[in-house]
Design a protein around this nucleic acid. Structure first.
Lengths: 301, 301
DNA sequence: GTAATGTTTATTATAATAAAAGACACACCG
DNA sequence: CGGTGTGTCTTTTATTATAATAAACATTAC
């Protein structure tokens, strides 16, 4: 029970290596020096030293700690299995929902999912709590969680919200001065798009990465933490959905490239109305694609 | 240890009342009936019945459970102190931050705060995790939480984001047909504003409520869960800040009423440009007020 | 007097656990 | 025998107790 001793085990093994390098008869550095070197607290260092003494690897307690024998591989400690952190969980969870095609309304079993994802139940709880801000999951009346899931309603609202944010970015972008780095970035993106168009027959799958880079570039001109936070969740959802909607992928992607090129022309025209219209057109298509992808995977038909 | 038996205690006391109403010699309903009536599981009901039997209030076990004696006030059970739920925490936390003037960068002590707010530490953790999506708090490298707080940067970005969302609402609103209920709502709001203007000298404090209703009405025309979620956090932050910025309150509020009236005129003019400009003007003032309120309370001067 | 070690305290992350919900199977009664 | 009720057991959650860690403070050695 209580927290894992991963830090202790890692520090122990590292200090074991240090003992080996120093050699028999060598003196151990001070506790403070060790703590600083391995980025752990002195408490951990003292724990390691105590164990080294017990194992007969170092002698003396206090200031004079000399190495008595070289450590053997058997002295290495085996740590507990490393759990994922909450940050690493996001992709895994969305992937699970889409890959397993978990229907909206499903009750999420925290204990079981925690095992499946190899995280602490506690981590999963926190993660759900933060996801509940985006209505992807919801708390059930007396404990537990439920997947709200990606209903068509959800897709429409997410796309609409994305459109609001991206049109705002576009309005900012158009007014940027010619020396702003965004213009060079857009030129590079156009080249990449045209290049992919050349080899679209075989490499249409590469579009997904380009799409993300394209939208990230446009939205990158707005430096706002709320926009960025949402951008994260939006690109996550779109990314995973596209990964699972294989129908018409080639045609879809080729069409999207052409839309992106028109979008780029619009941005560079300096004409606000033209830019916004091109953006709106592309975002509308994206919304339709997301909706279609839901329909393909849907349970109700 | 383990979860509180609040539900058991409440069910017990309610069923005690039922015993009293039924009277000596009366028969208890079935376990299922009791569970349904008091909205608890059969497990709880069985626990209650067992205790009633132990106390000698009912006789027999199984199908025939008769009331033996009337319960006395001493039979009532005393439940554990009720903890707040995560939903009730939001306001309390923001209130604490602003009232105590907690500076950005403060390390938040989960154990201590949990006591202060009378919630489980676990609940506070989840709450922080969900707040971290809005960058109000951040996870520290090796456990623990830190208040990012309401720096001027934060205020600027929050206000800008609010502006993006509200201008989007305005663009929708202007295009709504005359029979849409929003127009009646706006008429009512105008009347309320004019009425408050009459008694502004004494009741300037009432503006805060009106302000929230005003913006809620405008943003209410967009039915989007993401917009709504953000609206919540935005109005929370603005609400608490205004509550603590007492300087010039009367003048500020009177000026804001006039801006609201101009905003209303803009909305009803049917002229998109005029409506958007009026909205933008008011939102800009709001942003300045929020920034000033930060400056007044700031530590650095 | 400085740098090291020894001691104590505070705080977090996790495992253990009581409460609650719910599933299953059998018993009773018309 | 069908339906209602109870006994038993399993599953799952919310909370607490606790080991691991960090960090502050006190003491000793050179």
């Amino acid at each position: 029970m209580a927290r894992t001793n991963t830090r202790f085990v890692e520090a122990f093994n590292e200090i074991l290596t240090l003992c080996e390098e120093t050699g028999i008869g060598g003196a151990m550095p001070s506790e403070n020096a060790l703590a600083a070197q391995f980025d752990v607290s002195r408490t951990v260092v003292r724990g390691v030293l105590a164990r080294l003494f017990d194992e007969g690897i170092i002698s003396g307690t206090g200031r004079e700690k000399l190495i008595q024998r070289l450590p053997t591989p058997a002295d290495q400690m085996q740590g507990p299995p490393v759990l994922l952190t909450i940050e690493e969980l996001e992709g895994k969870f969305l992937d699970w929902v889409l890959r397993m095609d978990v229907p909206p309304g499903t009750v999420l079993n925290v204990a079981q999912l925690a095992k499946e994802f190899s995280v602490a139940t506690h981590t999963l709880q926190e993660f759900f709590s933060s996801l509940s801000r985006f209505s992807i999951v919801a708390r059930r009346p007396r404990g537990g969680w439920e997947l709200n899931g990606f209903t068509p309603d959800y897709a429409v609202e997410l796309s609409d919200f994305r459109t609001v944010l991206e049109l705002n970015s576009v309005r900012h972008l158009v007014e940027l001065p010619p020396q702003h780095p965004i213009w060079a970035k857009l030129d590079k993106l156009e080249a990449d798009h045209r290049e992919l168009l050349q080899r679209i027959d075989t490499d249409y799958h590469d579009f997904s990465v380009l799409d993300e880079a394209f939208h990230a570039a446009i939205n990158g001109v707005v430096t706002n933490r709320f926009v960025k936070e949402f951008q994260n969740i939006i690109s996550l959802v779109f990314h995973y959905h596209f990964q699972w909607n294989k129908s018409d992928e080639r045609t879809r992607n080729e069409a999207a490239i052409h839309e992106h090129l028109a979008y780029l022309d619009g941005l560079r025209s300096g004409d606000m109305t033209r830019a916004v219209d091109a953006a709106r057109a592309h975002l509308m298509t994206s919304k339709q694609t997301l909706l279609n992808s839901l329909r393909v995977n849907s349970h109700t038909g």
